[in-house]
Simulated scan of single mutants.
Amino acid sequence: MTYRILCDFDGTVTHGDVTDMLLEAFAEPGWQDIEAQWQAGAIGSATCMERQVALMRCDRQALNAMLDTVRIDVGFLGFAARCRQLGIPLVIVSDGLDYAIQRILTRHGIGDLPVIANRLMFLDDERYAMASPHAVAGCRSAAGTCKCRAARSTEEEEQLVLIGDGRSDFCVAETADIVFAKDKLLAYCRLQGIEHVPFEHFAQLTNFLSMGLEYEPATVTAACERLGVAP
């Protein structure tokens, strides 16, 4: 059996949402109103982020300094190393910003991980824009990065593994072969009856890799027991 892992970034690898951290630090007033429109379903996530990123005002030095304070789940480094040892493709698929993700991963020595995300564009010394090269017309969440599109690139003989925590992961969770979930994604899987394995930190998933990824819906309870989490 071969596997391909799609892993969310903000709130899954990192402690907190990186884009929100940048907006809180550097965006002009009004970004919260845009966020409220998205939360209410009036606009999609791509439109929301495009408008918010356009409100950011800071130079690259300040941007980098903020990104360098972002904490990650320290267990993710061991998890990425274990995937490499086992030859399992690990891809970061995020509705966040590629520059931020790559900066953070590089700081931790894993900047060579493939990243699928929205593109942060530097317009001048202090102004930014966002492009969405991985958007798909008709995407259910109107996301800048359609994770279902990334999932479709999985080879027929591969098992698709999803690791995530939020709304941008919902659609992939419905079709993935294995789902590791926490926070909003965990609640969604429980509500929708989607087979999943809850997790709290990546050290648990590294242990799971070491035990083997063999997984059937009927073994969810046993998998949770091995990870030491409640189903």
Rank of each mutant, 00 (worst) to 15 (best):
H108E: 11
L120C: 06
R60E: 15
D59R: 12
V115W: 00
S94D: 13
C83Q: 01
D8Q: 07
E216W: 05
C139W: 00
R71Q: 15
R152I: 00
L227M: 11
V74G: 08
T221H: 08
F199I: 12
Q39Y: 04
V18W: 00
V179C: 11
H196N: 12
E216Y: 05
M130R: 14
Q159A: 15
H108G: 10
E216P: 05
P29W: 02
G109I: 08
T69S: 13
A173V: 03
Q32W: 10
F122D: 04
A65K: 07
T47P: 01
N207F: 07
I110V: 12
H201Q: 08
A142V: 07
R51A: 15
G87S: 11
L227D: 11
V197F: 01
A62Y: 05
Q61N: 13
D17R: 04
N207L: 13
I116S: 08
G193W: 00
G111L: 05
C58W: 01
L123W: 04
R57E: 12
H108P: 05
T19H: 13
A218K: 09
P217Q: 07
E28Y: 10
G166W: 02
A40T: 10
A181H: 02
K184C: 09
M130D: 10
Y215C: 01
P231K: 12
S45H: 08
A173M: 02
G41D: 00
S153Q: 14
Y99L: 06
D59W: 02
P114T: 08
T206R: 09
L123M: 12
